[in-house]
Computed example of a mutant assay.
Amino acid sequence: MLLFSLLSVAIAPGLSLLTYLYLRDKYDAEPVHIVVKMFVMGIIILIPIMVIQRGLQLWAADLPWIVSYIESAGVEEFFKWFILYHFIFNHVEFDEPYDGILYAAAISLGFATMENILYAIFTPVSFSMMFTRALLPVAGHAIFGILMGYYLGKAKFSKRRKYYLFISISVPVLLHGTYDLILLSLPATWIWYLLPFMIFIWIWGLRKMERAHARSPFKLYIKEDEVNY
């Protein structure tokens, strides 16, 4: 019964955030089955990521910045980006900037949810610890995905495609790596640095969501329909 409750707490944050982001799609809602597919892909990529990270643990130097920016952030964000680029970037349903945000967040939250489930099963945890994971790691993966998707959207609908593709992987890796570096380098006082960091990047992410909505081509169609009505 306790395990079931912990699993519920592990799963709920990811699904709640994904539902919120899906409902924020104001102008042209994406097919649910594609969003779910990306969420499931996020779960699946956890397996190769764990294998590669284990290999890096055996061969790479155990330095905080290497663990943070390469072993953790570099590997995880690259796999997410790789799947998005090859499965979504040229997809016909990726037809407005916000779509990149939604699909990137879906794969990130799938990964974070599965990571949370494994954490609940194999690590002695309490409800307070799982609540903390909902506020920090799961929310962190969500915002890394939001920013990745925002810049993928810029790449999709901009002439500076290569530049924004580079930014779409660089920004999540840098932010994710900084998040991990704070945890590794400041084990006693990390909370005082991580909370302001999370607040800052969430404000940044929410503003990017509004900018993506503002550039939607469907916004103009809706306004014209309202005028005609």
Score class of each variant (00 low, 15 high):
F111C: 02
I169M: 02
S108L: 12
G205A: 08
I43Q: 06
F94L: 10
M50E: 13
W190K: 08
A104I: 03
I52E: 11
G100C: 05
Y193K: 02
I44N: 02
A134R: 02
P217Y: 06
D225C: 13
H86L: 13
L184E: 06
L23T: 05
Y193N: 04
I47V: 12
Q57W: 08
I169D: 01
L183H: 03
S72H: 04
L152W: 06
M130F: 09
V9H: 09
A212W: 02
V171I: 13
F82V: 07
A112N: 01
R133N: 03
G100T: 04
K208F: 12
A155Y: 00
T178R: 03
N90F: 12
I182P: 00
Y22L: 07
E224G: 13
V171T: 03
W190A: 13
L183E: 11
L174F: 04
L21D: 12
I182G: 00
A155V: 04
M38T: 01
F157K: 00
E226F: 13
P217M: 08
G149V: 07
I169F: 00
L63H: 05
L58A: 14
G14M: 09
L206S: 10
Y229L: 15
A12W: 13
E96D: 12
W190I: 05
G110C: 09
D28S: 11
W59C: 10
Y27F: 11
M129R: 06
K26Q: 11
E30M: 03
I88F: 15
I101M: 05
H141E: 08
G110D: 07
W204G: 05
R54M: 15
L186R: 14
S108H: 04
L181C: 03
L186H: 13
I45F: 11
W59R: 09
Q57G: 11
S72E: 11
A105L: 08
V125Q: 07
V51I: 15
L15H: 01
L147E: 11
F79V: 10
I11N: 01
I44C: 07
A60Q: 05
I49W: 01
I167C: 03
A61T: 12
Y22S: 04
I49C: 04
E77N: 01
D95C: 08
I101D: 05
F94D: 06
E76D: 08
F197R: 00
Y163S: 10
T178M: 13
E115K: 02
T189C: 05
I44F: 08
Y229T: 12
E71K: 07
L194T: 02
E71S: 12
I146C: 02
R161Y: 10
I146F: 03
L183W: 06
K162A: 14
A139F: 14
T113Q: 04
L165M: 09
L136Q: 04
F166E: 12
V67G: 00
N116R: 07
T178P: 05
M209N: 01
K159C: 06
Y103S: 01
G42A: 05
S168I: 11
V227P: 02
K159W: 09
V36D: 04
S185Y: 13
G14W: 07
V32L: 15
M50G: 10
M148D: 06
F131S: 07
H176L: 04
S8T: 15
Y119I: 10
W192E: 14
I201G: 00
H91E: 14
T132D: 14
Y229H: 08
I182H: 01
A73C: 03
L118R: 03
G42S: 03
L17A: 08
M129Q: 14
D62E: 14
R207W: 15
A120M: 08
I182F: 04
D95V: 09
F39V: 06
